[in-house]
Design a protein around this nucleic acid. Structure first.
Lengths: 240, 240
DNA sequence: GTCTATAGTCGGATAGAC
DNA sequence: GTCTATCCGACTATAGAC
């Protein structure tokens, strides 16, 4: 990544700056509209750069789209990487108790809720990822292998321990999907959710409500006693 | 609806036939691609009609899109209407037991799973509805008020009875969303789900597995003892 | 590296014959 | 109601000056 970036010059190298601005614009515009509805003019205008900068830096509109996808995967990896690494290390070292496993699961679920609902970029990310689920292209592989696969595998390992099941037992992954599903519905069906709850969006208060409910239902699904309520306060930025 | 259809002539009135073919083509093409990526030429080719038939019968490409949306709502209402009506009638008449309420909830959940995963048109419907959730237009209102709202309200009433909570307690709707979320993830994140389960699609066998797991997890969330397993066999058609 | 100008393509909608 | 032919606008990508 960024082979042309010279450390001493703090990203003010003209070409690098233009690339960055186009990627930021791409996250926003590709996220809001879809690939076809997004025009190179919108992208250039939003980035405040010239139209011809797109084919120059990224070869084509599609090239910019792929750069945007890689950028999102990097950001998401930064958010989930630490939790995933902790889970893998802890499970590899010792045979930890169910309650320790559940604590790690709670942590990653809280991170999911606050990232998916709370960060301002989340709506854009979700737009791009959801459209790739409906109509997968090469970009979906980058998302799946870069973020979804590692996170799902970590959850699978934890749930297998908690339920004393084998990770390769299909029922184990089905339990993981049930737990993750109740998180994702808030993003995938955002419009229906906020109408049916009469919410106006996802601000800090709503995010905490979602977090505690997700944990509560996860306990029920896993047959674990509900721990004392303490939703983590990480990432409480507003949605819109 | 269909004010021009003469009962005696069995849909062979030329104009009606052309309209129907265009709507069928629209379900397929708008579902697979998005509104902008869909061209009027694709639609006319798939329907086997002339390009100019689109502006003639539906005024514009957007007019055809709205006709497609209304058609989907009609079909979906046919699938959920009976269950919704039964629930509303039963709850209005008598104060039925938790187990009766849970039986009705199971029925509507099984219908959801088999409709959403099992019918051949489901992929197309989901494509259109999901894109409307990401980027809502006027069409989303038609979906929400026509299908989602009635189904969610029925589930809400049942869950309120089962949990002895008020329907207007936000926690009640959050429980409904958790239960529905585990169904929807199979459609909204279809690509990630089939990869992580190493499935090839949703055929009859997979649908039954999903149905029994959804009921099992719903029991856990609602604190109801798991009934004897008997997934309904309605609508077992194949996905692809 | 960045700009202006433009080439080349394609899509939606229309006009008017049949 | 259905067809062919065509207009007009908008889009991506490129050429070439600076």
């Amino acid at each position: 990544m960024a082979a042309t970036m010279v450390p001493g010059e703090r990203n003010s190298v003209p070409g690098v700056r233009t690339r960055q601005k186009l990627i930021e614009a791409g996250v926003e515009i590709f996220g809001r509209y879809n690939f076809e509805a997004t025009t190179t003019r919108m992208l250039a205008d939003r980035a405040g750069v010239n139209l011809a900068a797109i084919p120059y830096h990224f070869k084509s509109k599609e090239g910019l789209y792929h750069a945007v996808v890689r950028h999102i995967v990097e950001q998401a990896t930064a958010a989930y990487g630490p939790a995933v690494a902790e889970i893998n290390e802890t499970l590899a070292k010792s045979s930890c108790s169910s309650s320790e496993c559940f604590a790690m699961l709670s942590r990653i679920l809280n991170t999911m809720v606050s990232t998916i609902l709370g960060t301002p970029e989340a709506k854009s990310w979700a737009g791009i990822i959801l459209r790739e689920q409906i109509e997968p292209t090469k970009a979906f592989d980058i998302f799946y292998e870069g973020v979804m696969q590692p996170v799902l595998q970590s959850c699978l390992a934890l749930v297998a321990r908690i339920l004393h099941r084998q990770p390769d037992d299909p029922e184990t992954m089905l339990s993981v999907l049930a737990i993750v599903g109740q998180v994702l519905i808030f993003r995938t069906s955002r419009e229906a959710v906020i109408r049916s709850l009469k919410w106006r969006g996802y601000s800090r208060k709503e995010i905490q409500v979602v977090q505690s409910n997700v944990i509560k239902h996860a306990c029920a699904i896993l047959g674990v006693p509900v721990p004392c309520e303490s939703p983590s306060h990480e990432g409480g930025r507003r949605d819109e």
